[in-house]
């Protein structure tokens, strides 16, 4: 915290005062997210499957908020690293401070095979922006084992895997029917 007064005017009164502040928060990963991060480093996506309704939460939260039941290691399930684009947004970057992107890019929701688990805000690789579509089949592009990092994963960033997965690449399989996904909420 560094308050700094600007030069006083002729009448010696302070007209403006800069005040810079920053707050730092450090929160260790809670056990279920720690486990998720450790498994990511091994190249596995894990979730918790609610024993009551069957919905899968990725990363695990330790509970199902729909059924209000706690979930434990016993509810852990290994998820596929292949899936389907179920939604996407084309982002056209504006060059504000800190923006490193210069060309339009896509952030997609990928619903993993075998259930409801969906990873949001995912990068798609090796596909032009105007070819992205709902129903497109994709597979995770894992970073090489030694280059994976979970440093950016926090208790709050549900679904983040970008330190371990570079993005999702189209598999070339025929599309899944888009109407299966459109207009539906994902978890």
């Amino acid at each position: 915290m560094t308050p700094a007064a600007t030069e006083p005017d002729d009448d010696n009164s302070v007209k403006m005062m800069d005040y810079f502040m920053q707050l730092e928060y450090r929160e260790p990963l809670c056990p279920v997210v720690r486990r998720y991060a450790d498994q990511l480093l091994e190249g596995r996506l894990i979730g918790h499957q609610c024993p009551s309704c069957g919905l899968v939460y990725l990363p695990p939260r330790g509970y199902c908020p729909i059924c209000v039941v706690e979930t434990t290691d016993a509810d852990e399930t290994v998820l596929s690293d292949r899936g389907t684009v179920t939604n996407y947004t084309v982002v056209t970057p504006v060059q504000y401070y800190g923006q490193h992107e210069t060309e339009p890019f896509v952030r997609a929701s990928v619903t993993l095979d075998g259930g409801n688990a969906t990873m949001n805000l995912q990068d798609l690789v090796d596909v032009p922006v105007d070819e992205v579509r709902v129903g497109m089949r994709v597979a995770a592009v894992w970073k090489p084992k030694g280059e994976r990092s979970v440093a950016d994963i926090s208790n709050r960033s549900w679904g983040s895997a970008e330190g371990c997965i570079d993005g999702w690449r189209p598999t070339g399989e025929p599309d899944a029917p888009a109407e299966q996904f459109l207009g539906k909420a994902t978890f």
Partner: peptide, 16 residues
Amino acid sequence: RRAELTEPQFLFPVIS
């Protein structure tokens, strides 16, 4: 002093 669980996680059993 330092809960290992997140706020929603330690709230969960209290509300129940």
